[in-house]
Design a binder for these strands. Structure first.
Length: 627
DNA sequence: AAAAAAT
């Protein structure tokens, strides 16, 4: 139906500088519980509920926000809307789907630095043509129209200036779609490969909204950030922080970062100067909140990067604590945005607890964006891995792939394994360095810097480096040990082939990786990669052993390009209270805003037809090639 | 059994 593919060229704004204060291990002052003051929670009743009331009023998607003053708040913690699950009853109710055509893009390939540290990378190898055929999937109610240019978006004078400074000429696909959604104040679940401009996609609207609020944070003992961005690793938090600072340059919007492993006093000192946007890892943030140094009571916007990691078993309790058990405004009276390259069903289900009537957006699924990455899988028994690796590395030396502009990233399973392999490579004359979570933060950052600069063009890493990290010039990702989870594989190989450049990913498959075989085969097929015969055999055997796994329904989670709500019919049938769809029908009526009304009220009527306004049907699902 | 994230 509306499933169209398109031509585009782009390159993301590659972040280069990571100028951070040097970290020194210091003793942190212990704060006994009775001194950990409770912050007062009031004084926000006069605050607008949406970051973007102004925008919301101009758009078709304001309900739930602009109506806040006269309407009850949306369901708290995502449970509220489920209570209304019984309402409605149309076939395919509350489900919608659309795909849109893209224009061609022409983006300056380099991010101009506003700071020191100039790295003379050139875009000569950027493969623009490889970004043809980027499919975009959007589902949700009343979807804002995508923007084709930054002029059209018009984020205001100072932001426009920064966009020019960054040499962003045209928005990337994720930016085209996500920015209007975010500006409309809507909640969002977005799938896109990191390195596709995601950070800018949520930073620009956040900064814009804060400027519109015209209520910048003042210095004080307790920081009241207006926006919170969460990251699963410290390095990624730093990276986002650096980018956000560039975007907020000369806007008077203050950005601060909070992460562990570095002395908290510096971070606290920075907070006291006033914070509008706080970028944080969960642990340190909780620490600061318990010390009553940060209150989330003023949060208007919450963004989670690498959201699927943030909601996995290890992280979920911390996220729930931050989002649901502290003083953060409830779901529905804040704006919430999730970004990730992969979004498994279970995680989508969890995430929907934190979202209110959200839009699902997926840009660039595997068949398109990872054509840039040539994937190879080789059968290598554990015993032979080191020798095999050495041959591989020797083989790429003559090609000049060992130079500054061609880095090799090797993933291993364990921290000990990372150290061991680093040591062994060094012994054999390969300039390698390891990064993992057992190193102190300073070593981690030093390793990353050494790798980025090409001083040690081989980085041996655990999954600490698998997500979000943007290192230009990674030409080769080697999965020395394959991960257990196919999504981790996706994130790992995503460290290469970035910014429109091509990359190579080699995996060493051993007997232990049997459980991964099936998913790996599916992934390779979807990415138009050659599937070794032996791997196919493994996949068949594995699927017999593992028990015919339909664990990942429709294989849909691979590149996240699949709104799990489409499968909700199962739950609707079985249990009306578990329906995620109740909110859509329910919201419109309980808020007294029919679609027609809201369109009329906002003067946006072009969405009500065809490609934008319609609900998605089985027809469109089939047309889009799933099932 | 493993990695990440607070001290």
């Amino acid at each position: 139906m509306y499933y169209t593919t398109t031509t585009m060229t782009w390159s993301d704004g590659v972040t280069e500088s990571t100028q951070r204060p040097q970290t020194r291990p210091t003793q942190l002052p212990y704060v006994p519980p009775h001194l950990r003051n409770k912050y007062n929670n009031g004084a926000m009743s006069s605050m607008p509920t949406s970051l973007n009331d102004d925008y919301a009023n101009k758009n078709a998607n304001s309900y739930g926000f602009t109506t806040e003053s006269t309407q009850p708040p949306l369901g708290r913690g995502g449970r509220g809307h489920r209570g209304r699950g019984g309402g409605g009853g149309r076939g395919g109710r509350g489900r919608f789907h659309q795909t849109q055509e893209q224009d061609s893009y022409n983006i300056a390939s380099k991010f101009e630095k506003l700071e020191v540290n100039v790295d003379d990378e050139s875009p000569e190898s950027t493969n623009f043509a490889a970004y043809d055929d980027i499919p975009v999937e959007v589902s949700g109610s009343e979807i804002p129209s995508p923007a084709s240019s930054f002029e059209e978006i018009d984020l205001g004078e100072s932001l426009n200036r920064n966009i020019k400074r960054c040499k962003y000429v045209k928005p990337t696909p994720i930016q085209r779609h996500a920015i209007p959604i975010a500006l409309a104040g809507r909640d969002l679940m977005a799938c896109a490969q990191t390195g596709s401009g995601k950070t800018a996609a949520f930073c620009f609207p956040i900064i814009h909204a804060i400027l519109e609020l015209n209520r910048l944070s003042k210095p004080g003992r307790v920081a009241f950030p207006l926006a919170l961005i969460l990251s699963p690793t410290r390095e990624l938090a730093c990276q986002i922080y650096e980018e956000a600072k560039k975007f907020a340059y000369q806007t008077r919007v203050r950005v601060a970062v909070a992460y562990g492993g570095a002395p908290i006093v510096h971070q606290l000192h920075n907070l006291e100067k006033g914070v509008d946007i706080l970028v944080a890892t969960p642990g340190r943030l909780v620490d600061m909140m318990e010390r009553a140094k940060v209150s989330l009571s003023m949060i208007k916007c919450l963004a989670l990067d690498e959201a699927d990691r943030m909601l996995d078993m290890g992280f979920e309790p911390q996220i729930r604590k931050i989002v649901q058990q502290m003083d953060m405004p409830p779901c529905g009276s804040r704006q919430t945005m999730f970004f990730s390259a992969t979004f498994p069903d279970e995680i989508q289900r969890l995430a929907s607890d934190f979202l209110s009537n959200y839009i699902f957006l997926s840009v660039g699924r595997v068949g398109s964006s990872t054509d840039l990455i040539a994937q190879r899988v080789e059968f290598v028994p554990n015993m032979d891995k080191r020798n095999h690796l050495m041959n591989l590395l020797r083989g790429q030396e003559p090609n000049g792939t060992h130079g500054k502009h061609a880095l090799t990233l090797i993933f291993v399973e364990t921290k000990r394994g990372a150290d061991a392999l680093e040591h062994w490579l060094s012994l054999n004359g390969f300039p390698a360095i390891a990064i993992h979570g057992d190193k102190v933060q300073m070593e981690r950052e030093r390793a990353l810097k050494s790798f980025k600069s090409g001083y040690t063009p081989i980085l041996v890493a655990t999954d600490v480096a698998s997500r979000g990290l943007d290192v230009p010039h990674v030409a080769h990702v080697i999965n020395f040990d394959l991960p257990k989870d196919i999504d981790d594989y996706v994130h790992r190989i995503g460290r290469t082939g970035r910014a429109g450049k091509s990359g190579l990913a080699t995996a060493f498959f051993s007997d232990q990786n049997m459980p991964l075989a099936k998913a790996l085969v599916e992934l390779l097929q979807e990415a138009n990669q050659e599937v070794p015969l032996w791997l196919n055999d493994y996949a068949k055997r594995a699927s017999n052993i593992v028990g015919g796994g339909r664990a990942r329904r429709f294989g849909g989670s691979k590149f996240g390009g699949y709104d799990f709500r489409r499968d909700a019919q199962y739950e609707i049938e079985n249990d009306p209270y578990s329906s995620t769809y109740g909110s859509f029908d329910g919201t419109a009526s309980s808020y007294g805003l029919s679609n027609a009304n809201s369109y009329a009220a906002t003067g946006v009527d072009s969405y009500s037809t065809g490609s934008y306004g319609h609900e998605f049907s089985h027809e469109t699902v089939e047309a889009s090639g799933w099932d």
